[in-house]
Structure formats: structure tokens, C-alpha cells
Nucleic acid binder design. Structure first.
Length: 518
RNA sequence: GCGCCCGUAGCUCAGUGGACAGAGCGUCGGCCUCCGGAGCCGAAAGUCGAAGGUUCGACUCCUUCCGGGCGUACCA
């Protein structure tokens, strides 16, 4: 059954063709491609080759579909499919009848996203922005597909770094030198001067910094539905509980005055300390409690982590296996590589020493939310990201954000010029599309499959590429065809509305606005 | 040393085994009596880091090697 089974969008031709191929070949999750230049046809399949069956047999079966006009066998057994016009028109009607639902789904399981989760000891920097952009956009895609999504912020408000924060604030307040490995920089001075010198300074400073984090993230278009504190897990004895359970399962050992989790029995390189010989819990111990808690609350967990935490993955997975969660729950850990800031050809220093780092606030102030979010998703999370502040600000077609937003504004402008609103377009207006519209319709029809791919690969960056192609496909089409005043004005306006809706939807999924004028 | 990620056009990067490897930028050359030129069209540009292997078929999977980044705490 296709991933779209629950949506009821049965008129989508790619689904019908896929299902037919899967039925004939017994293959699962086959993919359709586009024939290479020089070959005719709209879609192409290698399924006969892959399944080792006679391509003619599959081609004949496909010919029986209403959506298929004809098929051709090419090369070693590829089948090139030409779609019927009705199938293409149906697709546009589908988009127009419920734009927001196109490619979406309903009633799926609960997914819990953990993202950013920075220590409350300093401002969020540009790297956190990448994590937030990836996590929030992926969360939006999951929501669109029908999942019940929770965005959660886990606050590491215990441990050495919090004590150091308190000490740093205290030193500043008393006009003393900040400790060697303490926190400095302008932000900490501001916080110190805004706090009373009595009470729990580390707690007060941490809360203040956390509020700053949420403020920044809100400006970045990211809103959380839940915040959890490491200190609460400790206070509520949840860390003790999980360690007790580990002991009972025979998963621990004592060595050198510390308590260890036997994670090497579950594919980790080494055993890991849970309770230090001074009696304190490690970060890992509270993380086990936290992930145990998350596993009770959701079917599918997604953690967005900076690549510098990759060494942590195996021990967490080891914990998941040892508690039997691994079989029942899906745990995705999305790692993202670092961000290199540039200004034109100049590298911007990212040293964290002495508080000299580029904060997310600074980037937002300089380039704005739309450009920042778009740029953060221009690369696969596996690749380092080169972020050019100069380009992000540029108001020209060199800047992909403007290029895409412009295509949206341009379509809005055409409707203004014609003097009608988008609501005036009816799905039935798509009736009678011509061959000139073929390419662009096929491109739009692929949107739901792109969303599936984003979902399957945890790869929201595919959307930025799709958006650039959407804009380009539209501009090319619009350059060759007359819309207002043409014989096919009604059909073409309907098509433009469909393009506009898909671009708006996709921009929304990456948290970028779709302006009607620029 | 070990582990993870990366190595594809001058630059930045797409490409979850299939037909001749793609895009943006940059370079060069075209297109504004015409709905937004913030646009479009064309050209030059590649031994997909190297070598083996698996396969009817490899940028993609496996092995080894060479570069670069990041980890490798009783820190978080």
C-alpha cells in the first residue's frame, strides 16, 4: 500500500501508476523517473528490469490504466509512459480543490522532536540556527503528513557548566576576574548587571538566558510546545528510577567507585559512567531518564544534534536497545555539520573563545528570518554549510530566496492585473490544458512524493531545491506563453494558481514567507 | 590509533544501483514596441579523490589507500 493510502487522494496519477507496477512486479516502493533527453514520455520505470520480467507484459498492464495514453519500451527494458491529458487536468483540479491538503495526510502517530536544547550558558549561535531550521521544518513536514508533532526543548540546567555560569556572574558583579574557563563576553555582563547579587545566581542567570533563547527562536519562526528540565528529572527521582531499573536488569557494574552502564554489550565502544565517584549523575544518566520518558510519550523520536555529538549516538542507542525501546519505537538522530559564515569571499571568524562568536540574533538582524531559514536548508545536513551573509542580503536573482519569493509575487501580480482573486478560480477551470502546460503540471504533481522523500530521509533541504526548480519552471513557462488575453486564459490562470499554492505551501514548510508584492 | 561525516564543473553543492552525471554562482554570447527583465535563452567547463571488488548495469554497495572536518571525559 502506498504511503498515501490514508489520504484518499486517489486521483493522483503517480500513485495509480506506482500501485499498478508494484502489483505486477511484486516490488515494493518503486520509484518513477523522468525519461532522459531524446526519449519521449512523461514518466519512466525500470521496474521490469529490476524485477526480471518481460517489459512488454508490464507495459501492456500499464496501458490499461485510464491515466496512461501510451507506453514505449526503450533501452534494455525501461518503460516510458506518456500520460493522458485528463490525468494531468485531474491533478491540477486536485491541487485547486484543497491546496493545503495536497500531498498531506491525516491521523498518524505521535512524533517528538528534540532540537537546539542548548545549555543555558550563552547566546544561541549560528550553528543552533541550523539545528532549529532543520528540526522545525522537518516538524512542519511531519505535521503536514498528519503526524501529531511535539517540539520539545530539553534544558541542561545542572552540572559543572551551570556552576561556572553562577561563578562567572558573581565575579563580574563583584568586579573580580572571571575564572579561567568561565563565561565572559558582553551578554554575561548584561545579565550580571540585571540580577540581584543574592540568591541562586546560576539558576537566575540560566533562566534569563533560556528566555533569551526562546525569544531568538521565536524571531526565527520556531515555537516550542514543551520545555523539560534536566533538574526536574533529577528532583523527581526519575534518574534514580531509571538507574534502578538498569541495575535490576543486570545492565550495570561498579568500577573505580563509579556506576557504569554496560553499553559495550549493545554495540557501543565502551561502557559508560552513570554515577560518578563523587555521587553525581552524569549527563548521560539523566539523558537515559529523559529518553525513557520520551519513549512513553511518543512512537517516533527525532533528535536534531550537531555533528560534534556523534560520538554520543551509540550509547543512547545502546540504552534504547537494553530497555527494549528499539524494537517498538523509531529513534532518528539527525546530525548536522557545522556552519561556516562568509561575507562575500571573506571568512567570518567563529571562534568561541573570549565570547567572540556570531550569534543567531546577529544573523537574523542582518539578513532577516526568511533568508536565514532558507539558507540554512540549502545543503544536506551531512555537508558543512557555507552561509554567505552578503548573498543572503542581496535583492537579486542571485539570491535564491528572492528568486523563489519573486515567482510567488509575480503570480499574485498577474491576478491583480487581471483584476480577479484566487478564490475566483474553480478546479474545473483546469479543463482543457494544452501540451505547453505538460512540464509544469508534472512538476507540481511530484510535490507529494518530494514530501514523502523528505520524511523518509529526514531531509528538509530537498524543499529548497524543489522551490528553486518550481520558480524556474514557472518563469520558463511564463516566458513562452501568453496568459492574460489568450484563448486559454481560464486554464492558464488555473495553472498559475496551482503553482502559486504549491510554492506558498512549500515555503511555509521551511518557515519562509510568501509575499504578494516585493 | 579507533569512530562518524565529507571529497562530483573555476567556486558552492544536488544526485537513498539504471539509459549520455545535474543545478546555482562565476566566465563568454544573445533576448526588453509584449501580463513584474528581481525574468528568459545559448555556450565553454568533469578520468564523480585513487585502486580493486560485487552486479546485466556503480557517483551510488563492499574492501584498501590518500586528503579534509569533527569526535574519541567519572564535561555537557
Amino acid at each position: 500500500m502506498s504511503a498515501f493510502g490514508e489520504t484518499g487522494k486517489k486521483s493522483m496519477y503517480e500513485i495509480k501508476i506506482k500501485e499498478k507496477i508494484e502489483q505486477i512486479t511484486s516490488l515494493e516502493d518503486i520509484k518513477l523517473t523522468t525519461p532522459p533527453p531524446g526519449f519521449s514520455g512523461d514518466l519512466s520505470s525500470n521496474a521490469a528490469l529490476a524485477a526480471g520480467i518481460n517489459p512488454r507484459k508490464l507495459a501492456e498492464a500499464l496501458n490499461e490504466l485510464d491515466e496512461v495514453e501510451k507506453t514505449e519500451i526503450a533501452g534494455p527494458g525501461f518503460i516510458n509512459i506518456t500520460l493522458g491529458k485528463e490525468a494531468l487536468e485531474e491533478e491540477i483540479k486536485e491541487i485547486l480543490s484543497s491546496p493545503a491538503l495536497y500531498g498531506g495526510g491525516t491521523k498518524k502517530g505521535k512524533v517528538l522532536f528534540e532540537m537546539v536544547s542548548s545549555n543555558p550558558t550563552g547566546p544561541l549561535h549560528i550553528g543552533h540556527g541550523r539545528g532549529a531550521a532543520i528540526g522545525d521544518s522537518l516538524a512542519r513536514i511531519f505535521e503536514k503528513l498528519g503526524y501529531d508533532v511535539c517540539r520539545e526543548y530539553y534544558v541542561n540546567d545542572t552540572g559543572n557548566q551551570m556552576q561556572l555560569l553562577g561563578e562567572s556572574v558573581k565575579c563580574i558583579q563583584q568586579g573580580q576576574e572571571v575564572p579561567e574557563d568561565g563565561y565572559r563576553g558582553d551578554y554575561i555582563k548584561e545579565i550580571a548587571s540585571g540580577l540581584r547579587s543574592s540568591g541562586d545566581l546560576s539558576k537566575a542567570a540560566g533562566e534569563k538566558i533560556l528566555r533569551m533563547h526562546f525569544e531568538t527562536l521565536k524571531n526565527f519562526g520556531v515555537e516550542y510546545s514543551s520545555t523539560v528540565y534536566e533538574s526536574d528529572f533529577i528532583r523527581a527521582k526519575k534518574v534514580e528510577d531509571v538507574i534502578e531499573k538498569m541495575k535490576n536488569k543486570g545492565l550495570t557494574l561498579e568500577k573505580d567507585g563509579a556506576l557504569w552502564f554496560k553499553s559495550s554489550q549493545f554495540n557501543d565502544d565502551a561502557d559508560r559512567v552513570l554515577v560518578k565517584n563523587d555521587g553525581e549523575f552524569t549527563y548521560f544518566a539523566s539523558d537515559c531518564a529523559y529518553h525513557s520518558d520520551k519513549a512513553q510519550r511518543a512512537d517516533h523520536l527525532v533528535n536534531i544534534w550537531g555533528a560534534d555529538h556523534h560520538g554520543y549516538i551509540e550509547r543512547l542507542r545502546a540504552f534504547f536497545k537494553s530497555f527494549g525501546y528499539a524494537e517498538k519505537k523509531r529513534l532518528d538522530i539527525v546530525l548536522y555539520q557545522l556552519v561556516d559564515l562568509k561575507r562575500g569571499n571573506e571568512k567570518v571568524s567563529m571562534s568561541t573563545r573570549a565570547g567572540q562568536f556570531v550569534t543567531l540574533d546577529e544573523v537574523l538582524d542582518e539578513v532577516g528570518k526568511d533568508a536565514a531559514r532558507f539558507f540554512m536548508l540549502m545543503r544536506s545536513s551531512d555537508s558543512p554549510l557555507e552561509f554567505d551573509l552578503e548573498l543572503a542580503k542581496e535583492e537579486s536573482s542571485k539570491n535564491p530566496v528572492y528568486y523563489v519569493q519573486y515567482s510567488h509575487a509575480r503570480i499574485c501580480s498577474i491576478f491583480r492585473k487581471k483584476g480577479i482573486s484566487f478564490e475566483d478560480v474553480k478546479p474545473s477551470d483546469a479543463q482543457g490544458l494544452g501540451d505547453e502546460e505538460r512540464e509544469i503540471v508534472k512538476f507540481l504533481a511530484h510535490y507529494p512524493f518530494l514530501l514523502q522523500k523528505c520524511f523518509q530521509l529526514d531531509a528538509p533541504h530537498l524543499l529548497t531545491d524543489y522551490l528553486r526548480q518550481s520558480a524556474s519552471t514557472f518563469h520558463k513557462y511564463y516566458d513562452t506563453v501568453k496568459v492574460i488575453g489568450s484563448e486559454k486564459e481560464r486554464q492558464r490562470l488555473a495553472l498559475l494558481k496551482a503553482v502559486k499554492e504549491i510554492i506558498k505551501d512549500a515555503l511555509g514548510l521551511i518557515g519562509v514567507s510568501a509575499p504578494e508584492r516585493m
